[in-house]
Design a protein around this nucleic acid. Sequence first.
DNA 1: CATGAATGAGACTTCATTCAT
DNA 2: AATGAATGAAGTCTCATTCAT
Lengths: 193, 193, 193, 193
Amino acid sequence: MASVKTRLIFRAAVDVFSERGFEKATMDEIAAKASVAKGTIYYHFKSKEDLFVFLVEEGTELLREKVLSHLTEEMSSSEKIREIVRAQLAFFTEYRDFCIIILRETWGDEARHREFRRMLVHYVQSIRQVIAQGVDEQIFSVENAEVAAWSLFGSTSITALHHLFADPAVDLLALAPSLQAIALGGLHAKEIT
Amino acid sequence: MASVKTRLIFRAAVDVFSERGFEKATMDEIAAKASVAKGTIYYHFKSKEDLFVFLVEEGTELLREKVLSHLTEEMSSSEKIREIVRAQLAFFTEYRDFCIIILRETWGDEARHREFRRMLVHYVQSIRQVIAQGVDEQIFSVENAEVAAWSLFGSTSITALHHLFADPAVDLLALAPSLQAIALGGLHAKEIT
Amino acid sequence: MASVKTRLIFRAAVDVFSERGFEKATMDEIAAKASVAKGTIYYHFKSKEDLFVFLVEEGTELLREKVLSHLTEEMSSSEKIREIVRAQLAFFTEYRDFCIIILRETWGDEARHREFRRMLVHYVQSIRQVIAQGVDEQIFSVENAEVAAWSLFGSTSITALHHLFADPAVDLLALAPSLQAIALGGLHAKEIT
Amino acid sequence: MASVKTRLIFRAAVDVFSERGFEKATMDEIAAKASVAKGTIYYHFKSKEDLFVFLVEEGTELLREKVLSHLTEEMSSSEKIREIVRAQLAFFTEYRDFCIIILRETWGDEARHREFRRMLVHYVQSIRQVIAQGVDEQIFSVENAEVAAWSLFGSTSITALHHLFADPAVDLLALAPSLQAIALGGLHAKEIT
DNA sequence: CATGAATGAGACTTCATTCAT
DNA sequence: AATGAATGAAGTCTCATTCAT
C-alpha cells in the first residue's frame, strides 16, 4: 500500500464497490476513478476479488482498531459498551462506504464472503470479551455473551445503515444516546443507564 | 402466482437468488432448477429484476403477516416484543433463504434496492407501533421508538444470519430467550424480563 | 381473405410492418392490434414471411390496378403519364403504409425480397408499355423505355416518401403538377407539358 | 478510423449490413468477416447502431463529396446535372453496398433512420442548389426546386438499384445517357439535351 | 512500472413457432 | 376455428483478464 498508484486505486475501489456492490462494480470504472490504466490495477492486485478482499481486510481491521483503541482499563463495562457504540457510529460516519460494503458483502458462500465473515467474527469476538468481562463482574447479566455481541453489532449497524439511506445527511452520532440506552437497558431501560 | 409453472419458477428463484445473490444468479440456473425453458420465465415475468422484486415483495409481506398475526390485544407490550422476536426467528427458520436475500439486497441505489427498503420500512413501522404503545403505557422508556424498532430488527436478523452461516444446522429458536431478554432488558437485563 | 379474422389480421399486419419493418415487427404486436390470439395468425398464415408476402402481393397488385384503371384508350400518351403520376400519389396517400413497405423491403436477397421485386417489375412493366407506345407514336423520344419507367417510378415514390417523413400531414397530391412537369419535360420543361 | 482493426471492422460491416440489412446483420458475422473477436467491435463502437450510423455518415458524406467535387464554375447548369447523374452512378458502381444500404435503411422512425435522413437531406439540398441556380439563369423552368432535386435523386438511385439486383454484372454508367436525357428533357426530351 | 487494445466466455432478453386444449 | 402457454435458438452486449509494447 506504499505506492501512490496503489493508494489511488484503493480509494477509487472503496468508492466504486460501495456504490455498486462487488458484482456490479467494474475494473473500468475503478481505473477511471483512480486515473490509471486498467492494466495498472492488475499490476498491483491479482484480481478483482483480490483487490476487494484487501480492501475489506483493511477496512475491518481499521474498524476494530478504531473501536478498541478507545477502551481503557479504567472504564467500567457499561462505559466500554457506550464507547463501542459511539466509536462504531463514528467509524460509520467517517467511512460510510465501508459500512455499506460490510453489510452487503458478508452473507454468501464464495471465498470472499467467508474471508469477510472471518474478519467480522474477529471484530465481534472483541465485543464479546467486553461483555463477558461485564458478566464476570456481575454488571451484565446476559446468558450468552456471543449472542449479545452479535445483537449489539446488528443493532448498531442496521440502524446506522437505515438512517444513512433514508437521509444521506444524517448525523449518525446523534443516534448514540438512544442506541447506548437500548444496548444497556433494552426497552425497559430508564434509570439504569 | 396461480399457474403451476409460475410457482415452480418462484421457488427456484428464491433458491438461486439466496444462494448466489441477485447479480450472480442466472436465469439459466433458475430455469434449470424450475425445470422450465428459459423463455417460460420471461413469459411470466418481465425481467430478472421483475422476478426478483415480485419475490421480495411476497417475502417481506409474508414476514410482516407471520410476525403480526400472533399479536393479540390481550398481550402486554413486553409479551408482544417477545413474540415479535420469536416469530421473526421462526420465519427465518422456515424461510432462511428470504432472510439471506433481505439482508443482502437491501442496501444500494438501484430501483430494486429502493423498492425493497420501502417494504422493509413498512415492516419496521409495525414494530415501531408496538414499541410506541409500550412507551405510552409507560412500560417502555425509550426516547426514540423508530431507532428502537430498527435496533430490534437489526439485532434479531444479524444474529440469526450469523448463526445460519456459522452453523447451517443451528436451531434459531434456541436463540429466542437470549434475544428476548436483551431486547427488553439490554445487557443489564436480569430479573426484569 | 374471406374470414373476418383474416381481414383483421391483414390490417394489423400492414400497420405493424409499415411502422416497424419486417424484421422488427412481431407477431405479438400484430396479434394484439388485430385483437386475436397469436395462434390464430398461424391458423390463417403459414408463417410471418407468408403473411408478409401475401400482404405485399395484395398491395402491389392493388397499386397496379388503381394506377392502370384510370388509363383509357382516348388519352394521349402524355395524359397517361400525368395520370400515372397522379394515381400513384393518390395511392400513396390512401395507403401510405404500403408506400413505406414497398421501398423498405424490396432490396435484398431473401425469398420475400425477390418475390417482392417480381411484383414491382410487373408494375413497372405496365408503365414501360405506356412509354413505349408514346415512343412509337413519336410523342416521347427516350431511347430506353425501361430505364424511363424505373426513373418515373423512382422519381415519384422517393419524392413522395421523403415528403411523408418530412411532414406527415403533407398533401401528396399537391406534388402532382411539379412531378408531372418534370416527368414529361425534365428540368427544361416549360411550355411543352 | 485510424486503427487497423477499426478499418477491418468498417469494411466487414459495410459488407454485412448491405447484404443482410441492419436488423438481419449480426455482430457475429461482422466479427468473423473482420477476423476480430466480437468484443473488439464493442471496444471501438458503442453498439451495433453506433457502428451502423458511423458507417452511414461516412458513406453519405463520401457520396456528397464525390458528386460535388466534379462540379466546376465553368460548367453550365445542364452540364452540372449531367455530371451529378454520372458521378452518382459512378459512386453506386464503386460502392454498390452503400447504395443498397442507403435506400433500405432510410425510411423509418428509429433514431438511425432519422439520422440517416438528415444526411440524405443534406446531400439532396446540394442538388437543389444546382437546380435553383439553373432556374435563376432561366435555363431550367421547374417550379419547385426541392421536388426536382428529390425526383432526380429518386430517379437515379431506384433505377440503379433495380439494375444492380436484376443483373449484378450491369455497367451502371451505361445508364448515364438515358438518365441524363430524362433528367433534363423528361420523356419529351429529344433535341433539347 | 505502466499501458490499453484485444479477447471470448457468458449473461439477459426476444420472438417465431408449436401444440394441447 | 381459435387459443395462449411454452419453447429454445439466436442475438446484443458486458467485462475480467491478458499481453505486447
